[in-house]
Design a protein around this nucleic acid. Sequence first.
RNA 1: UCCUCGGUAGCUCAGGGGUAGAGCGACCGGCUGUUAACCGGUUGGUCGGGGGUUCAAAUCCCUCCCGAGGAGCCA
Length: 430
Amino acid sequence: MDWVSVSQLKERIGQEVELRGWLDGKRSSGKLHFLQVRDGSGVVQCVMFRGDVDEATFQRADHLAHESSVVVHGSVKADARSPIGVEVSAKGFEVVHESEEYPITPKEHGVAFLMEHRHLWLRSSRQRAILRVRAEIIAAVRSFFDDRGFVLVDAPIFTPAACEGTTTLFETDYFGEKAYLTQSGQLYMEAAAMALGKVYCFGPTFRAEKSKTRRHLTEFWMVEPEVAYFTLTEDMVLAEEFLEYVVSRVLERRRPELALLERNTAALEKVKAPFPRLSHREAVALLLEKGVPADENDDFGAEQETVLAQSFEKPVIVHRYPAVCKAFYMKKDPADPSRALCMDVLAPEGYGEVIGGGQREDSLEALESEIRRHALPMEAFKWYLDLRRYGSVPHAGFGLGIERTVAWICGLPHVRETIPFPRMLEKITP
RNA sequence: UCCUCGGUAGCUCAGGGGUAGAGCGACCGGCUGUUAACCGGUUGGUCGGGGGUUCAAAUCCCUCCCGAGGAGCCA
């Protein structure tokens, strides 16, 4: 008898099969049991009639806790009442391990309880759908860059100093020296772009900020492309094509998961390049028009970002922020040196910033002066400055936060469900 | 770090000075088509910790701990 996954059952109608999985649910009606068996590929109902199995097996199935691991032998039958179109008539039934009383029940639970049981919560249908969409997004990200001639270059996790200097870093002891967990692979990608032209890194990043919101994690995954000879305009085009590709691929391959999550896919269908683009000054004007206070020389706050994003059905690109709000490596706009050649992509439906990036400063003198202005240790950036000594070229790139992208595409209110084991402010278990 | 709300049964919550409650879960029983099954019964408590006020505190006060939402900052 063949071991078959639930997802393959439709091709096995009329055949005897073996299923290996977990008892996802159970209902009983006197002389028959309805056993929902989950094996990772799906859930199928196994119907066990008293008389089809020996009495001991029938009793065993009647007194079995949720999540007990089981092996079922039976024949596959088409059934219109089944959500997946098939059922299994159980003939044999083996308990691999009898579960203790399972803490997560079909009824409602609070977020705190579910997060404490994250290792078990992953088994529930919504969480399985989210993890599959996350995996699809990551696969799409890699295909997009791989297919366009980008080379994957891994950035280090241990770094000797702040990449941006402004945000808090996790400090570790590195053989008696201070080292920090990376908050961005960008500076290393700039070096790699000078070697390979088009590169990207994809890995975890760490921010020790005491942020306590639905958009923040202390450990999150980021993809960061960097391209030699790219300017801001080309960077924005790349970001648009990239987001369009990722969203369309999820729509193409993960419809059932999006349906289970009750995601409004019509909103996602609209994510087609080009996106609306506003300079920071234009965005401020739009906000003032809508009666929202805004300042041309200030960064946007949460409310302003939300209003901007809700003004459009597609993601919106805001570029040329005031240079004073931005990191030291951002190139100034030659047409207006008070502006940085940077851009943010704000996702629609209130999901906020999913991409941040821009053109990098390529002049040695300008970069040195910015490092001094930000009071950063020049010595730590010696190697980075070398990139401006030996064949410096215009270049640009951006970073996309995977978890915010997953939250947006899945329509989730909080990033904590978008990563298998979230690391948040004062939360490191399980 | 700051602001707001919360912590009572395994879970979700009600009770806000005078005998500790409900639904779900679990357990026992019934039912040959259940989909969060249904019906009957049983079980279930350090009311977050400590201190105070009071004849009497889950309830009022102080303090600490934990959780949720928001701000700033960011992806």
